[in-house]
Design a binder for these strands. Structure first.
Length: 422
RNA sequence: GGUGAGAUGGGUGAGUGGCUGAAACCAGCAGUUUGCUAAACUGCCGUACGGGAUUACCGUACCGGGGGUUCGAAUCCCCCUCUCACCGCCA
């Protein structure tokens, strides 16, 4: 969430920048600043009231000690009115602040200056393309048919075991999953990311920390007996490692990578988007997370984009990098680069990675801070990106690498798969 | 799941109603001195919010979380959560 200080110091800036996200913030920002000013005057009043009570209480203590009991009793009577007053001030202040908090979380993150104008995904800017789109013959198949023919992914069996969106990978299909996960983790750790294996269920506090709760509650699977949530992405447990943490100067940079299965209810999706591997309820993903000082976060973002591009390039699959426009940017992101692979048999681009800088928006929720050179406590910046999400990589790989009904495994993966053709 | 014991500042750990925002020690930071891969001494050393002469000052809150008793609570009462130990079960 945004900081009150920013909203107070430069409301017009916030309103102007949020317009890039097509978010009309004027009303909320005005209301927030009103509530914030109430908050401060109420607190000043309440603090003064409590201070007198404290003063009187210690007077009574002193009198009692000297055995001047009657005087103490007399002083006690003075407190009653103050107690009434502080009680009412406290109630006012609590309801005021509750309203303030409920409003401030409605404001999305401010897009950074690099974010292009635009309404929706059509307005995203292609910043780079790489690797050639293969010429497939007329008998080229979409991945779900290839998977069935080669008997490497069984969607129907997944339906039997669980439901739609929970495929079963078999034989070389299963091995391919494992190969990709290891390949991605190896590249990430070589680039200095610390490998982490986090829990795949998190508590409520973690869900709040990264912003999945309360808004996206319906998107997560909930184990209600213990009130745990299945992680929708490793970002949640990994970033929450640093919830309520104050980092020192020497702790930077923080670079972590983690593989987890990801669970998403994806309520409301339908049609060609959910065919085959295009959209699943459970999928594998390797994530990278960074925590940086504000002055370094954009350099870190560029590094992450270059890193992910290196992985995609090495797979030899046709890709492009998009800079998301204001209208397509997620609620919490200040800037996002999407990576897409071209799925030749479907004739469409599939998103396989999203690399974002959240600046201090997540950190403010997480209470993730650091001591700067002057010893001041400030909010850190958080960033994350997929490197990579497996299903659509597999979809594109199957479709783009098909030849005479078989799949030619990309060179870099062969040490991991142990085979070069499916 | 059962029984018992606990939860205090970065760490160890004191503290059973007012003198405790919290002893002491360790770690950390700054300085002094002796001098040299180090020691001694002195000072500083939690967070948030508010006020303000906006880095020095003042106020308020916070001793797992929430509520209660009281003029006053880390300290008493209630509820919850978590941790540890033993037993049971188990990959």
């Amino acid at each position: 969430m945004l900081t009150l200080k920013l909203l107070r110091d430069d409301p017009e800036y916030v309103i102007r920048k949020l317009a890039v996200k097509h978010f009309d913030a004027r009303e909320i920002v005005t209301k927030i600043n009103e509530l914030d000013s109430n908050r401060r005057s109420l607190q000043t009043e309440l603090d003064a009231c409590l201070a007198s009570q404290n003063r009187i209480a210690s007077q009574i203590g002193a009198l009692m000690k000297q055995g001047r009991k009657d005087e103490a009793e007399a002083v006690k009577k003075e407190v009653a009115a103050l107690k009434e007053q502080s009680k009412s001030l406290e109630e006012k202040s609590q309801s005021n602040n509750a309203e303030l908090n409920s409003l401030i979380v409605l404001l999305p993150n401010i897009p950074c200056d690099l974010v292009p104008e635009g309404k929706n995904s059509d307005d995203n800017v292609v910043v780079k393309t790489g690797n050639d789109i293969p010429e497939l013959g007329p008998d080229a198949l979409p991945h779900w048919e290839l998977a069935r023919k080669l008997d490497i992914i069984d969607f129907d069996l997944g339906v039997k075991l669980t439901g739609a969106g929970f495929p079963v990978y078999k034989g070389k299909g299963a091995r391919l999953q494992r190969a990709l996960i290891n390949f991605f983790l190896d590249i990430n750790t070589k680039a200095g990311y610390l490998e982490v294996e986090p829990p795949v269920m998190v508590n409520e506090a973690s869900g709040f920390g990264t912003g999945q709760l309360p808004d996206k509650e319906g998107q997560m699977y909930h184990a209600n007996l213990d009130n745990y949530y299945l992680v929708p992405t490793a970002e949640v447990p990994v970033t929450n490692i640093y919830r309520d943490v104050i980092l020192g100067q020497d702790d930077f940079p923080v670079k972590m990578t983690a593989y987890t299965p990801c669970f998403r209810r994806e309520a409301g999706s339908y049609g060609k988007d959910v065919r085959g591997l295009n959209r699943l309820h459970q999928f594998d993903k390797v994530e990278i997370v960074r925590i940086e000082k504000p002055e370094n976060s954009y350099a870190a973002l560029d590094e992450m984009v270059a890193h992910v591009e290196g992985i995609v390039r090495s797979l030899g699959l046709p890709y492009r990098i998009l800079r998301l426009c204001g209208g397509d940017l997620s609620f919490t992101s200040a800037i996002t680069y999407d990576f897409e692979l071209y799925s030749a048999a479907q004739g469409r681009w599939l998103e396989i990675s999203s690399v974002s800088n959240f600046e201090s928006y997540q950190a403010n929720r997480l209470k993730l801070r650091y001591k700067d050179a002057d010893g001041k406590t400030r909010l850190a910046h958080t960033l994350n990106g997929s490197s990579l999400a497996l299903p659509r990589v597999v979809a594109a790989l199957l479709e783009d690498c098909q030849k005479d009904g078989h799949i030619i495994i990309p060179e870099v993966l062969r040490p991991y798969t142990g085979f070069d053709i499916i």
